[in-house]
Amino acid sequence: MKTVLVVDDSRIVRKVARRILEGLGFAVDEAENGAEALAACRSRLPDGILLDWNMPVMNGIEFLHALRSEFGLGEPRVVFCTTESELDAIQRAIEGGANEYIMKPFDAEIIESKFQQVGLL
């Protein structure tokens, strides 16, 4: 079973994302911020990461840079999931190594479409 790490400081967003991703057949882990997510990746690298941008301690883009410099560019697949919806933010995320990008609010259809695009479905 493929694994997805949901990284978001909102408990509600994590819960909604978990329900959708489990419905798509993924095993789901959660982290509240980038630092927790990095620790989780060091203990076990997931197949995919659903990543919020604005979080305390370590934000999404800082986490992404740390992840890619430590584990390389290929894996895991990273799908940003954020309220940031301006072109320059999206471009920063892609240049930082994100594979796909979701602008909140999201629904099950969008999550499914994006995880298909990154090859996890």
Partner: peptide, 20 residues
């Protein structure tokens, strides 16, 4: 809408061929 461009359209195509 934001919802429509997130159904099926890869993000790199969105940034390349659309303006906000």
């Amino acid at each position: 809408s934001q919802f429509e461009v997130q159904r099926g359209l890869p993000i790199t195509m969105l940034t390349k061929y659309f303006r906000k």
